[in-house]
């Protein structure tokens, strides 16, 4: 099991150090912008804003080795205030975004989590809870699955693999067993059985320095295996590449895989994945109310660049839609192979 970069005061806890490492790894390779231009995109521009992704903070009951947030039990330093959360809701009301995507850390640990869910649901939004599963087993969250189901919340649950080895390798010993227990709890609450008001999506990240499997090709296998081995059902599988940032970047360096992984991302550049990347239809809001093109840029302190500087308190929808999206080397992670986003494959 690992600990947070922050608690270890590791150099990579500083986003600037992560960017410098990434930039150094790109020597001799085409920049992401060059790859974009080669594919006919002079700049990555916004599409219709569909998703408000709100990161409530970095507090988490787990410390996964690949976490791009550097979340963990010691990260109560970074938690969204009620004031900022209300500003998110006011900004949401300026837009026609249909989805509120709540992430963290473990968002369920935030004291205002239920308030946010209830307010978004009241506005008729589709609400997504990005859930690490084990958090549902905590005594404080007893009954949460049913409560979320009553508000039509989609659960997007992280599960690296339908077998124990890769899951525990990435998320810590015992994580698989807890995940299975939580999935049973969700099934018992009506999730994962084809009810559009109780959608259970599983999200798989590779447990290593390789790309995610094409989700469409493995979904049936996952469904069969989880049903056969554990009696568990779910609705859909999403596959996401690991971004070479934060704790995954640390692991890449320590395991000697950084160069080969960057090669894999760069060589795997897939132009057809560009259109669907999440930064084009998403606004990412950090715990302290700053605005980003995506959750990965957020973790790298790459603020969105708009004509006039803004936070969620001063959000201006028209100006937001006129920005150019900020790109760096890690963006190759979203365009490699079948593409990758919070909604899964993009190609």
């Amino acid at each position: 099991m690992t600990s947070t970069l922050s608690s270890r005061r590791a150099p990579l806890a500083d986003p600037a150090a992560q960017l410098a490492t990434l930039d150094a790894s790109m020597t001799g390779r085409s920049t992401f912008d060059e790859a974009l231009r080669g594919a006919g995109w002079n700049a990555l521009t916004p599409a219709t804003l569909e998703i408000f992704q709100i990161n409530l903070g970095k507090l988490c009951n787990m410390t996964c080795r690949h976490c791009h947030v550097d979340a963990g039990p010691d990260r109560s330093d970074a938690m969204m205030t009620r004031e900022t959360l209300d500003a998110c809701l006011r900004a949401l009301d300026q837009t026609a975004a249909h989805t509120v995507d709540i992430t963290g850390g473990a968002p369920e640990l935030h004291p205002e989590f239920r308030y946010l869910v209830a307010e978004a649901h009241k506005r008729g939004k589709h609400v997504i809870d990005r859930c690490n599963l084990s958090v549902l087993l905590l005594p404080r969250n007893a009954g949460l699955a049913e409560w979320l189901g009553d508000r039509d919340v989609e659960i997007v649950a992280s599960l690296p693999h339908y077998r124990q080895r890769n899951t525990d390798a990435q998320r810590g010993d015992g994580a698989f067993e807890k995940s299975i227990a939580a999935l049973r709890l969700l099934n018992a609450a009506g999730y994962g059985q084809g009810d559009p008001r109780r959608i259970l999506s599983l999200m798989t990240n590779p447990a290593g320095a390789f790309l995610a499997a094409p989700q469409s090709s493995i979904e049936n296998e996952w469904k069969t295996a989880l049903k056969r081995d554990f009696g568990i059902t779910f609705d859909r599988l999403l596959a996401l590449n690991n971004m070479p940032i934060s704790r995954f970047l640390e692991w890449l360096i320590e395991s000697g895989n950084l160069d080969s992984y960057m090669s894999r991302l760069v060589d795997g550049f897939n132009p057809t994945a560009i259109t669907g990347v999440m930064c084009r239809n998403t606004i990412s809001i950090s715990w302290d109310g700053r605005l980003f093109d995506c959750d990965f840029n957020q973790m790298l302190d790459l603020d969105a660049v708009t004509a006039r500087s803004m936070t969620i308190e001063t959000f201006d929808f028209a100006a937001w839609q006129q920005r150019d999206i900020v790109t760096r080397a890690h963006c190759y992670g979203c365009t490699a192979g079948a593409g990758s986003s919070c909604g899964g494959a993009t190609a």
Binding site: G256, N257, D259, S260, M262, S263, V266
Partner: peptide, 11 residues
């Protein structure tokens, strides 16, 4: 481990 030296694809 796939850890051999990676360089520019054109190299």
């Amino acid at each position: 481990h796939g850890a051999y030296t990676a360089r520019s694809t054109l190299e």
